[in-house]
Amino acid sequence: MSLGTGCKHEWGALLSAVIVTLGLSVATPAIAQNDKMAAIATPAQPNAIDLGTGPLPGATVKESWHSQYGSRFARNVTVATLTPFLPDPAKANGTAVIVAPGGGFTTLSMENEGWDVAKALAARGVAAFVLKYRLNQTPADLAGYETAMRERFSGGAPPRPSPAEMTARIAPAIADANAAFALIRKRSGEWHVDPNRVGMIGFSAGAMLTMTTTLANNNPKPAFIGEIYGSLAPVTVPADAPPLFVALAADDPLMGNSGFGLIESWHSAKRPVEFHFYEQGGHGFGMYPKKTTSTGWFDAFTAWMTMHGWIKPAA
């Protein structure tokens, strides 16, 4: 079973509105990169802003980082931050996007699904903000992390929690996402952002966080949302649901065979939705270069944004 580049030990997440399942799987990298996890020092993040949601309740393990596939990942995040990637003022168009990396709520693919996405958006004139949200605690050392995950899922998928239970389980991350929206809108003048044009895009677990945040009783909702290899489980779509962009690979072993309920839900509610179902790409492709058409998801996403008028100067 291949999860695609970047997901071999990211514990690819089978994340839907009602289930989170992490799996340790073997994959063949699409490009020559080291697939072994190695502990690294926490990188400097001078522009990261504490979101003020407080330390993770009951946390005893400190934040740590590791490298894999030439990318960097965070674990045991206990304090949420938001890192701005602001465009050249000459290119700025007033639109902002919160970027939520994935990793099954036990790790965050900060580079491939965070910083690299934000840099690419900023190059298009979009103010991007990488959300480092609080995670479930795992063993401090990588070997212990691997062992814990194997033991946790050796008996197969855990029982499916209800939507309410799932929301409770990721409550800190939801609070972090809501705080990110509030901060961007509060400082919109400073960052040259239109507070009515703040969207969100998430990857895998980050896609689940994006959807859960959107469906919550928040006001105002995101201006638009993107789900990249997230769950396609059907949902109840509110009348004010924002336009939705979805990208998924047909050979994604976690999400590729889950049906198209989410797309049908959005379409039935007569809300705008665009869906790209790539033949190949696996899970976790993000911004990694691959010889599959899934690599074109970012250009498709920004073309969709342009079609809706979000990538042009604000009126």
Rank of each mutant, 00 (worst) to 15 (best):
T60M: 04
D88V: 03
G103M: 00
E279K: 13
G230Y: 00
G94I: 05
S154C: 03
L135P: 02
G23Q: 15
Q137L: 07
A315N: 14
I49L: 05
E146M: 09
N219E: 13
L14E: 11
T212W: 08
G155C: 10
N178A: 05
A314L: 07
T95M: 09
V235H: 00
A80P: 07
G261Y: 10
T292N: 10
R197W: 09
P222T: 13
P29M: 04
A48N: 00
F298C: 12
Y69K: 04
A30C: 11
F153P: 05
V273Y: 01
K8D: 13
R169T: 14
P158V: 08
G4A: 02
Y278N: 03
I98T: 06
P172V: 00
I201K: 05
F298I: 03
R187N: 15
A216S: 09
E274K: 14
A250T: 09
H283R: 04
V273T: 10
S294D: 08
A122E: 08
V79I: 04
G226K: 07
W304G: 01
K291V: 10
G144R: 05
R124D: 15
P84F: 07
G282F: 05
V237W: 01
V26E: 11
K8H: 12
G104F: 13
I184M: 08
Y288W: 11
F298Q: 04
A179C: 01
G102M: 00
Y145D: 10
I49W: 07
E10C: 12
E279A: 15
Q33A: 15
L82H: 07
P158I: 02
P163G: 00
H192W: 06
M37H: 08
T214K: 08
R185D: 12
V26Q: 03
V246L: 15
G6S: 03
K62W: 01
M211F: 03
Q33S: 15
T5H: 00
A30R: 05
G202I: 04
L209V: 07
A30S: 14
L24Y: 11
A17S: 14
P139F: 06
S109V: 04
R160D: 14
M305I: 09
A80T: 02
S2Y: 12
Y133Q: 01
M37L: 13
S231K: 02
G70A: 07
M255I: 10
G4N: 00
K290T: 14
V246T: 13
S2W: 10
I174C: 06
G144K: 00
G103W: 06
G226H: 10
L51C: 01
